[in-house]
Computed example of a mutant assay.
Amino acid sequence: MKKSQLPLIIGGFVILILVLTNPGLEDHKAKVKASFRKEIKSAIASKTDQESAAAIFGQTLGTAFAETVIDHLITRDNYLLLSLTKLKFDGEPKVIGVGILGNVFITKKIDELHEESKQ
């Protein structure tokens, strides 16, 4: 084996690893749902005891509804080496995350879209 072939072999191995570990659509949806649940829990933690009972009931109902909505609004663009998590917002898909090496990373863009929806 020549020394000039070593970078090609290493590069091919890296590309193969990226392709094989590219997260699927369900991984993207699960990460968005987990992010949503985390936001709900932190909002409930700031409530008083009286407000907590109603908030927990609302959380249960809201989470079930939101997860159904998330299933319909989240899409994934597959680029073989990595994938993009997209959220359909105002009829237009917005990139809110990246999937690579078996992980999905949600960006701060989801917080910006949340604030934008409040206005």
Rank of each mutant, 00 (worst) to 15 (best):
T68S: 10
I56M: 06
I110H: 10
S46R: 13
A55Y: 01
A30L: 03
G102L: 02
F65V: 08
K31F: 00
F65A: 06
G12F: 00
K33F: 01
A64T: 12
E51Y: 00
K41D: 07
S4W: 09
G97S: 09
A53E: 05
G62P: 08
K29Q: 04
I40E: 15
A34T: 05
E115I: 07
S83V: 14
F89Q: 12
V32T: 11
I44K: 15
V69I: 12
T107V: 08
K29Y: 00
L73S: 08
K2C: 10
L8W: 08
K31R: 08
G24S: 15
P23Y: 02
K3E: 14
I40Q: 09
F36G: 02
L6S: 12
G24A: 13
S117N: 15
L87I: 05
E67D: 06
L25M: 09
V104D: 01
R76I: 08
N78S: 09
S46W: 06
L8P: 13
I40R: 05
D27P: 01
L81G: 06
I96Q: 11
I106Q: 01
L73H: 05
K41C: 02
G62Q: 07
F65E: 15
L84W: 13
I9Y: 08
A43H: 07
S52D: 07
K109R: 06
F65K: 11
K108G: 13
F89S: 10
